[in-house]
Computed example of a mutant assay.
Amino acid sequence: MPFAAITYDIKPGYESELAEIFGNFRRVKSDQVRTETGEEAGRILATAVFIRDDTLVRVIEYQGDLEAVARHMAAQPGVREVERSLKPYLSRPRDTDTVEGFVATFQRSLLRTVAQISVRDLPAAS
């Protein structure tokens, strides 16, 4: 399963406030990612958020099309609420008020994958 990581440029010194924002995150109703026409496009398997100094990173484990995952996330009430709550703590504003703005910001803040290793990728032991 692939992973994606996106960064947020934040003001340092607000780790507790940011942890609270993500700690109150409202999970999505379903892990299923669908296109605008309702076709299955993937799944969000897991997410994690990390912070240090002026950088916050969200890691997403997913299946399927990453742009469809970003579009799905943009439409989720919990994600929209987090993005609104983060605004005062950002050192660089993010245009995430629309689906198009969210997807463009997502793509711009996406870290390049250098390596991914999982025990799921190993051959089964005989």
Rank of each mutant, 00 (worst) to 15 (best):
D31C: 03
D121K: 02
V79W: 08
I10P: 10
E100A: 07
G38A: 00
P123A: 09
R120Q: 15
M1G: 12
L110Q: 12
V79M: 08
F106Y: 15
R52Y: 11
L122S: 04
E83D: 14
G101S: 04
N24Y: 05
A70V: 08
A124G: 06
T113M: 12
V79L: 02
Q63Y: 09
R92D: 12
R80T: 00
E17V: 02
D97W: 07
A74R: 08
D54F: 12
P88F: 01
A19H: 08
D54K: 14
G42R: 01
V49E: 06
A48V: 08
P12I: 06
L86K: 10
Q107D: 10
I60V: 10
I60P: 00
L66V: 04
V114D: 12
A4D: 06
V59P: 04
T37Y: 00
A4L: 06
P88K: 00
F102N: 03
D9S: 09
P93A: 05
L56S: 11
V69N: 06
K29E: 15
F102R: 07
R112N: 15
V57G: 04
T113K: 13
E17M: 04
F50T: 08
F106E: 07
K29P: 03
G38L: 02
G78Y: 06
K29M: 07
Q32C: 00
S85N: 10
D97Y: 01
E39T: 06
E67I: 05
S126R: 15
P2E: 05
G38K: 00
S30Y: 00
F22S: 04
V82T: 15
V59Q: 05
R27W: 10
H72T: 15
R108Q: 13
V79H: 09
D53Q: 14
Q76Y: 11
A104S: 11
P77N: 07
K11N: 14
E17A: 13
T98Y: 06
Q32H: 02
M1L: 13
A74L: 04
V33F: 05
T98M: 04
T55V: 13
Y62P: 02
I6F: 05
A104E: 09
G78C: 04
L86S: 08
P77R: 07
Y14W: 09
H72E: 13
D53S: 12
G64L: 09
T105S: 14
F50Y: 14
F25L: 14
A68P: 03
Y8M: 06
V114E: 15
G23H: 06
A68W: 04
A5F: 09
R34E: 06
V79G: 00
A125I: 10
I44E: 05
Y14L: 07
S16R: 08
R94S: 05
A75M: 03
R43P: 03
A5V: 12
I44W: 12
D53R: 13
